[in-house]
Structures are given as C-alpha cells and as structure tokens.
C-alpha cells in the first residue's frame, strides 16, 4: 500500500525526514512513534500527497504522488493533527460537503454521512453546529470525515493528542473497529499506550530517522527487559545512588525524578534494592513498555 525508500524532506537547511524506508501492507495498522519534531507529521504529509518529497522514492497504492496526487488522495482518508472542520456548517453538512469533493452523489453522500455519524456516535448531533462540540466529538467527526470516501488507507496524525482520557478511549475504540474491519491504518502518535493498543507494527522515529522497527511486543523484547523497577529517592541525588544499583539489574536509567532498573524479574530486583537499605521513597514494579524502548534507543523520554 505504501512503499518508501530513502525518503527525505528538507525545509531550507532543516532536515525534517532524513532518509527513511517504510513498507505498509494491506490491512495493517502501522504506527509512526516519536517525540514532537521527530518528522512524523512531515512523513504523513508526504504520504497524504500534500508535500512533495525532497529526495527518495515514494509509492502509494502503487502510484507516484508527484504525478498522480489527486488520484491517490481520492483513495485516502486524512485525519489531520489540527481540526479543520467547517465551523459554518452543521455536523452532517461537514460530511456531505466533504463527500462531494470526492465526486460522491448527494444522495449517496447523505446516506453515508448518516451511517458514519452512527459509527462515531454523533447521530444526535447531526444538525448541531460544529462550534459547541467537545474536543473529543470534533475529533470523532474529523475521523468520520476521513472515512466518507471509504478510503483504502486512513491516515491519522496524532488522533488523540489533546483529548482527555475518556475521549481518547472512545476514539481508540472506533479506530480498533476500523482495524477489525480490515482497513489499513497509518497513524502517528507520541503516546506509547496508543501505539501498543492499535499498531500491528510500528517504527520509532527520532530526529527524522527510523531508529527501530517491529511489532510493539518484539520491540519490547528486543530493546528492553520483561519488567522494570521504578525507584524514587526524594532526598538523594539519583546519580549518587545509581552507582550502587548498577549490578542489581541488566541496565539502569537515571531520569531527573526517578531511577529505572531493567530486569527480567522485577520483584527479585526490588528485593535486592531493599537489602541495600538505601531507603527509596517509592518502589514500583511494572511490565516494560514502548516508553522503555524509546528511552533505551534515544536516551530520552517521549513526552516532555
């Protein structure tokens, strides 16, 4: 569905995307994970055929974005990072007018709009203006708008950024259904839990490059341990304690507010910390996640 080799995007002297290779297969839920400024959105804009690549090869649905941009866009559904709904139209009208841009007949467009409003649970708001909708509702409407042409690929740029936890779960639930229906999803996120929930496969991006690729599970297996012990020392500088902890775990990460011990048996490591009697304020054993993968790969946390 998407094939990229050595894809580069430069803005003047700034390189936003620095030679990435991407393959997305039909029916796959594919994620670009990385902090702000990693090049995720630039990549999405290139795939969405609104940003010509500076160098490299890009094929979408077997077509060339440079020459067949409109034909490709006719088969994509785009949910941009910033809402771009028409505030002067009602909820339903937003869907119908957008469908018309795809050449869908008015009657079909209306039926499709009603169907999609059911899908994103906005049927009661069909005749409401867009303005009074909550952030989560607007995002769901934007997702519905992206589906109006029954796209081959849905591109979702940070679909839940800025939403409260409940609204995020509603969005995830809808996206998960799309995935079950076999739609190809491509999404960017800087939320680890989002990537773990939705993505079959993902690439971790940092400063325009891909630093790792695989399923969430395989990335965790490869770049982290099974469990992690989080320690907080309120009175001591973490650096001072870290030296003493080094041999208790496979790897130790020192963050400004806590120390992470990577060990396959977290409870055993926590036990060993207790025996040292360093007096941590809190000890938490948890399973490893993508956050830990990112930390290992880049030495930084994702959301700062």
């Amino acid at each position: 569905m998407i094939y990229a080799r050595g894809l580069v995007k430069r803005f003047g002297n700034f390189t936003a995307v620095d030679g990435i290779d991407v393959d997305v297969a039909r029916g796959e839920a594919f994620g670009f994970l990385g902090p702000n400024g990693a090049g995720k959105s630039s990549t999405m804009r290139m795939i969405g055929c609104v940003s010509p690549p500076t160098a490299g090869t890009l094929r979408i649905l077997g077509m060339d974005p440079h020459r067949q941009g409109t034909a490709i866009r006719a088969r994509l559904g785009v949910c941009p990072q910033l809402d771009s709904l028409d505030p002067e139209l009602t909820v339903a009208e937003n869907l119908v007018t957008y469908a018309r841009y795809f050449g869908i007949p008015r009657r079909t467009a209306k039926a499709r709009a009603a169907e999609l409003l059911d899908f994103v649970q906005l049927r009661e708001r069909a005749d409401s203006r867009v303005e009074p909708l909550s952030g989560g509702m607007k995002r769901r409407l934007t997702i519905a708008r992206a589906l109006v042409n029954n796209p081959d690929i849905a591109l979702l740029d940070e679909p839940t950024t800025g939403l409260d936890p409940q609204a995020r779960h509603l969005v995830w639930d809808r996206l998960f259904r799309l995935k079950q229906q076999g739609m190809t999803l491509v999404l960017t996120t800087h939320y680890m839990d989002e990537a773990e929930q939705l993505c079959d496969r993902l690439v971790v991006m940092d400063t325009g490059r891909i630093v790792a690729e695989g399923s969430p599970r395989s990335l965790i297996d490869r770049y982290s341990t099974r469990e992690v012990v989080e320690l907080r020392f309120p009175d001591t500088a973490p650096e001072d304690v870290a030296g003493k902890l080094a041999e208790l775990a496979e790897r130790v990460e020192v963050l400004p507010d806590r120390i992470l011990l990577y060990a396959d048996d977290g409870d055993a490591a926590a036990e060993a910390v207790h025996r040292l009697a360093l007096g941590p304020a809190s000890v938490l054993v948890r399973r490893s996640g993508l956050e830990d993968v990112f930390l290992h790969l880049t030495g930084r946390t994702l959301v700062d």
Partner: peptide
C-alpha cells in the same frame, strides 16, 4: 483559523 483550505487540499482537489 478554520483551516478549511487544508482539508480541501487533502481531498482530491487541485
């Protein structure tokens, strides 16, 4: 403000 032109550009419009 409304950014509607951006959504038009994402559709198959030139």
């Amino acid at each position: 403000w409304s950014r509607t032109y951006h959504s038009l550009a994402a559709a198959p419009l030139r």
